[in-house]
Amino acid sequence: MNPVSNEDDRTPQPVARAGGLGLKEIIAVVVVAVVFGFIFWVMDQAWTSLSVAMGPLGDLAQNVLIGVWFLAAPVAVFIVRRPGAGILAELVASVVEVVFLGNPVGPILFVVGLVQGIGSEAAFAVTGYRRYGLPIFLASGAGASLLSFAFSTLRFGWWGQSLFGVRLVVQMCSGILLGGVAAWLLCRALARSGVLRDLPAGRQ
């Protein structure tokens, strides 16, 4: 029962996995994706008639609402601070949507998710996963918007329509506002609540 301990006796801190995602980080990313998936499902249930009516209008309304889908990746990267977190979050969100919740848009959402994840994560990757201020989130939202716009152009054949310019502007605004600002606000609130204490976000 020695009241004074020497430094030699100290349990070494576990070596931080350089660049890898451990179970805890993966589950945190999955949690983010699942909660967003659930929220979207709730919104969908609340507006069932709208979603059928959205069918014909869907082609247009897509560009407005798409920003909401970009929220998962930046939040995941913020919490876990490792490369690949954003892409993983979007891929998991696709699994949740398609396989767990049975969204009839189907497996192509995996590709959509991958593209969105890459676009979102680009801004964080370029700054070495060290900066998490509002500008970076805005850049992340813009990146996700651009890349997913490119894929959607291919997927829905938007090129050649007179609406092309309008779509681009609307999608960029949606992506930056929702995917950037909203994500940043959520991350700040989560950090202040103390729930991120034992995750990489809480250690910095």
Partner: peptide, 13 residues
């Protein structure tokens, strides 16, 4: 059904 509606919209647009 949503896919059918979406397709209709695509044709129109």
């Amino acid at each position: 059904l949503p896919a059918l509606g979406f397709a209709l919209g695509v044709i129109v647009i």
